[in-house]
Nucleic acid binder design. Structure first.
Lengths: 191, 191
DNA sequence: ACAGTTCCTGACCGATCGGTCAGTTAGCGT
DNA sequence: ACGCTAACTGACCGATCGGTCAGGAACTGT
């Protein structure tokens, strides 16, 4: 089957994440793929379609994770399950997450990006409803945002890449610790 | 004195942070300032000059913070002083930090951005030299990156803005906790 | 050998980009 | 009244952007 489409999707995703959607031309994507700009537009009818194809799988997966989170009550077990799912998610979809962190707000009115932004809002709303103090909300934002940002900058700045297993374990540890005080009982958050 | 230059700097900074440097045209900046594109180029000889003027103060301040950090040994007091300086820095220069997080790697060969990227590397190297395990390094990245990201997304997605004092206090608390295990003694990082 | 489909290409289009330049307006010192 | 300068503008430039279109090469089934 046509492997060109998949190549283009991957190349475009990398470039969109690193140089930005506006900063990446179809010509450049074509060059990196060893094709002409016309060929890119043969596989994807527009630049926006290419963007959509690039991030759609990640958005679908994130929707699943959120559905599972909202389906049950927030028990400690459920919270830990979400945490592991989230860490694996950003590990698997680094580039997509990178794109979203950087350009989600600026790429409004692109349908697939809007769907992704809605997911972010859903996630924020969910934890806003399950947290009380400002510090708790920020704790949550720093954990999730920081974890995602950490992986992005790590390959973006080309820093030393630790083994995936070790990275995964460290992430789960840190996030568990950061979000530990959060829970149904309101008095367990002592300063 | 000419307030137009300052207006343009501020407007450009906001747009660069939100829509990206490549995604912001001089025409749009001019419109937002109520001027013509030619007038923008009268005050700043090029788009790059405008970018430079916009982020220069933040980079200068960050350089000072790093100088102070590297001048002394990393005592607990020094670490806390750095932490407070860092929190105040990202609170004061939100938009610049936002720009850097998102587009620092993609805007290479712009001199002022390169200087900023060097600062990031300096900071990373410094803490890489003062940390041992992978988890410690990640803890550091999540803390600093997450704190910066949190403030960006908060005004970028237009979420509820907590009072500055409360935000500041919460940030300092969380970062202190996250970086607490780090220090000269190697055995204080128990799992 | 023929037609059909897939994949790909160069030439071309209008729009927009950053940037240049000649010229206009307004204020200020003399 | 005069000239000087700072602030600003519209017209224009080459380059590049995303996208269209007619057509060529390669592979298929018949």
């Amino acid at each position: 089957m046509s492997t060109s489409s998949d190549d283009l999707r991957s190349i475009a995703l990398t470039e969109f994440a690193n140089a930005g959607y506006a900063g990446t031309s179809l010509h450049r994507i074509a060059d990196l793929a060893g094709l002409s700009k016309s060929s890119v537009l043969y596989h994807f009818s527009s630049k926006e379609t290419l963007l959509e194809a690039a991030v759609a799988p990640a958005i679908r997966r994130m929707g699943e994770i959120l559905d599972a989170l909202e389906a049950e009550s927030l028990t400690p077990e459920r919270r830990r399950a979400f945490l592991v799912e989230f860490v694996d998610f950003i590990l698997q979809y680094r580039r997509e997450v990178h794109m979203f962190i950087n350009q989600g707000p600026s790429l409004v009115d692109v349908p697939v990006i809007d769907r992704g932004n809605e997911l972010v809002v859903r996630l924020a709303d969910y934890f806003a409803a399950n947290t009380t103090s400002v510090e708790e909300k920020m704790r949550f934002g720093i954990a999730l945002g920081g974890a995602a940002y950490m992986l992005c900058i790590q390959e973006s700045h080309g820093l030393e890449a630790a083994p995936v297993d070790e990275t995964r374990a460290a992430l789960i540890n840190i996030l568990t610790e950061l979000l530990a005080p959060m829970g149904p009982s309101p008095e367990n958050r002592a300063r």
